[in-house]
Amino acid sequence: MLEDLDKNLSFLELKCRRPVEHLLAGEYRSVFRGRGVEFEDVRPYQPGDDVRTMDWKVTARTGVAHIKRHIEEREQFVYLLVDLSGSILHGADGKTRRTVVEVCSLITMAAIKNQDRVGLVLFTDRVEMIIPPGKGRSHAMRIMDALLNFQPQGKGTGFAEMFTTFGHLARKHSATFVVSDFLSSDFLQEMQALTLRHDMNAIRIESSSVTKTKISGLVRMKDAESGRQRVVDLKSGDGDDGSVLRQQMVEAGVNLMELAVGQDCVESLAGFFHARQRMVTR
């Protein structure tokens, strides 16, 4: 069993490595950059130093001219906030989770290649697992292993506790990816508030369901999270095509990527990064 898990993880890394090295790392870097420069320390003034960097408070206190030293802030914090509720894990074929695993692994490897720190929060109706931000291949493999193999306890979806936890974790500006099918409705206000401090991105996983087929009329459906059954009128439009969510995300200032189960994650991510880059350069 452990050998099979190791093989699956190694295969996932190999599958993601080539597109990251040849395409996604560059696209990622063009969008998600450090935030300029940050203060490092002060040192005594030397002839030729730019007087505009003079630290007048330290100079006045010590009686010796000092300047401020700054370093370029390249390192970025990246967080993956990943929904593992029943609606994501339902189905014997596991295609929905595989799509989530692949897109998150590609983001992780692109960020790690860019020397960024990546953190992970897995959630259902509770916070299931936290991996604090870290760097390097071994850290990336730890995140990918959790995405691939972690078995959650909860089945529902609860954004409130997860966002509260994330708020305590992310003290610095972070590029944040919330990965979910967004079937719950308690996320919008919290995400909008977080856009004031973080670069918020949502990846909506679109499950293949009867709403994508030619079936119309009344259909009895079982909620994968609560286990309850209800009758849905597909003809009346109960199966949402995502237009409402798109409008909500635009109004909240959140960048939305829509990814169908089984869709090419590399192509979709490259398109999303490219669209983000066009917005930055306008």
Rank of each mutant, 00 (worst) to 15 (best):
V280R: 15
E40L: 04
L269M: 11
L169I: 03
N201F: 15
E206L: 13
D4V: 04
K235D: 05
D181H: 13
L89G: 05
L106H: 09
S10M: 09
H198L: 03
E225M: 10
K113Q: 09
V42W: 04
F273R: 10
I203D: 08
S180A: 00
E102K: 15
S226G: 01
D116L: 08
L188M: 07
Q248P: 02
R17L: 12
L256R: 01
I205K: 05
E225T: 09
V250N: 11
S174M: 02
A224R: 07
C265G: 13
G217L: 02
T281R: 15
R74Q: 06
P132N: 09
I67Y: 02
K57V: 13
Q189W: 04
I130N: 02
Q247K: 13
F166M: 00
H22K: 14
R74H: 02
L5C: 06
Q263S: 09
Y79L: 01
L5E: 04
A260H: 08
S207F: 06
H90V: 08
S207W: 06
Y45W: 13
L245E: 05
V82Y: 00
T59H: 02
Y28K: 08
L89F: 07
H168S: 07
Q189E: 12
R98G: 14
S138I: 04
G227N: 00
K214C: 07
A252I: 03
L259C: 01
K7P: 00
F166W: 06
F32K: 13
T211P: 04
R52T: 05
Q229V: 08
L81W: 02
D199M: 12
G119Y: 05
D55M: 02
P47R: 04
L234C: 00
Q247S: 12
L106K: 05
F77G: 03
H66N: 06
K212H: 15
I143W: 07
G36N: 05
